[in-house]
Amino acid sequence: MPAVLFYLFSALTLVFGLMVVVLRNPVASALSLVMSFAGLAALFISLDAYFIGIIQILVYAGAVMVLFLFIIMLLDIKAEALKKVNAFSVVGGALLAIVFIVQLGMILGGLEAGKKTVADVPIHFEAAAETQKLPTIKDDLAKKSLPDTKLVGMALFHRYPFQIQLMGALLLVGTIGVVILSKREVN
């Protein structure tokens, strides 16, 4: 991806992220967060991580934020928009953010990987294809396309089978709980 696009999408993510905090209207904030997620998804896709990029949109922009918006719309927005700005919390928040940015800058500045570009670390498709056992992944790698979804699946189901089953059980319990909770009581 050309560097221009990287800067475009980073700017998109950051500007809309800032608007989430600055805008007074909760609906506008929620929609800004959606745009910020879209920019973030574009950045993931630029790193060949198609799966994570698409899931970012599917889960966060498409489901979580819709629910947020749904709840915000049921609230009284005028009262929310008229709330006075608390000077102390603004200064405190800004200070925390600055400290975090300085920390991040110091750590990332000292990182060796930060000095490399994607062109410096090409993917060795042939070598990678030989190490894989599953035919679909092997074929994709031999054709020089990165099967990121399949690789994520392999990692999840072969390296962390216990953890993924635990997560699955947790989510299932959650789903059943929702169905039970939303059930009306019958006399």
Binding site: I57, A61, L69, S145
Partner: peptide, 16 residues
């Protein structure tokens, strides 16, 4: 390489 997921993701934005 994520065809159906892409369709679901973008289509879910239609609800906005």
């Amino acid at each position: 390489n994520v065809g159906p997921l892409y369709i679901f993701a973008i289509a879910s934005l239609g609800v906005y």
